[in-house]
């Protein structure tokens, strides 16, 4: 009972941290803004320059970070359940790499440009989704034959390397300007998205979130093994498929518009589990969205405050890798 009383305060506390981080991120950027100027601009002051910065650059960047963090947190938790592996996430299992390659192929061969939204944001998201789906299909097909979680993890990492190598080949064939765009995309960034792209990411997150919520009791039962789940009458194949479709949707959209962003998917769920002392997906799915949002906003804030240009993907790695070491050093990660 003591734990559940504590849990009741953790969600509002997490949301409050999100709001505070989002406000701090509003102040940070190329041009430092005081809290007073930001607040008066949000209240509708006629300082057009500040309003343009806030509405045109910073709010889209913050929304991109929030949605990406929440989405990747959600995807990571689902993949950890599907593969019963505490280190599974879209980045490690090659799904982000697949999404990136899908977007790269589409933009290079179909629209003759670089990784930008030249072909329009919807086809770009669809191409990334197709790439993510192809990678997921490969991982699921292999997981049906390989029961060892560690070998499957190695397969995912190798798959990611192959996809990244293929994306690099496309980079080489791109022109100088395209190469620059390729590079900035592959480093990961929450900047530069318009409200259309944010809407698409939000839509994908909503769809993926609904799928995950409907699937939550299925994600619970597959943690106890396929035989137990089947003996209890659970449709294991449908549960896995639902989770992977949800992961593909959200990973595809996020990777298309923010680049491949790692680590947040792995750590969000573990932080949520250790704070809430539960592994039930009914609680952990929304909680990992909050922790994912907090991590992504923190990474963005650090990138914005840095005196040297710091791509958000690198910041995420700098925050995420030590956290992963902590997870690895703890016994019983994900209950195993």
């Amino acid at each position: 009972m003591a734990v559940s009383r504590k849990n009741r305060y953790l969600l509002p506390a997490g949301l409050l941290i999100l709001v505070l981080l989002a406000f701090a991120d509003l102040l940070a950027g190329g041009q430092a803004l005081s809290p007073g100027r930001v607040l008066s601009s949000l209240a509708g002051s006629d300082d057009a320059a500040v309003r343009d910065i806030i509405l045109g650059i910073r709010i889209p960047r913050i929304l991109s970070a929030l949605i990406s963090g929440a989405a990747l947190g959600l995807a990571g938790v689902q993949m950890q359940a599907v593969f019963r592996n505490p280190l599974a996430d879209p980045h490690i299992m090659g799904v982000s790499g697949g999404a990136g390659l899908g977007a790269a192929i589409a933009t290079t061969f179909l629209w003759g440009g670089a990784i930008t939204s030249t072909g329009g944001p919807v086809p770009m998201a669809l191409a990334a989704f197709a790439g993510a789906a192809a990678a997921s299909f490969l991982v699921i097909a292999v997981s049906a034959r390989i029961s060892s979680a560690s070998i499957l993890l190695i397969f995912g990492v190798m798959l990611g390397f192959i996809f990244n190598a293929m994306t690099s080949i496309l980079e080489y064939s791109a022109g100088e300007e395209s190469l620059k765009l390729f590079y900035s995309w592959s480093a990961g960034s929450f900047s530069g998205n318009r409200y259309t792209e944010i809407g698409l990411m939000g839509g994908a997150l909503a769809l993926g979130g609904i799928l995950a919520a409907v699937n939550s009791k299925g994600l619970d039962i597959i943690l106890f093994g396929d035989d137990y789940a089947r003996a209890s009458g659970a449709p294991v194949g449908r549960i896995r498929l639902g989770a992977m479709v949800s992961c593909c949707l959200i990973t595809g959209a996020v990777t298309a518009f923010c680049g491949p962003i790692g680590f947040v998917g792995i750590v969000s769920g573990h932080i949520a589990r250790s704070l809430l002392h539960t592994a039930r997906h009914r609680t952990i799915l929304p909680a990992s969205m909050v922790t994912g949002g907090i991590i992504a906003l923190t990474a963005d804030l650090i990138s914005q405050c840095s005196v040297i240009p710091l791509p958000v993907g690198s910041t995420m790695a700098l925050i995420g890798i030590p956290l992963i070491f902590v997870i690895l050093s703890r016994k019983n990660a994900l209950g195993h």
Binding site: R84, D220, L223, F224, G225, D227, Y228, A231, R273, H277, T278, A279, R280, N332, L334, G335, H336
Partner: peptide
Amino acid sequence: ILLVPTGIPKVKGF
């Protein structure tokens, strides 16, 4: 008829 399989993991957090 219900089967209780072998090797069910003790999942932490349940």
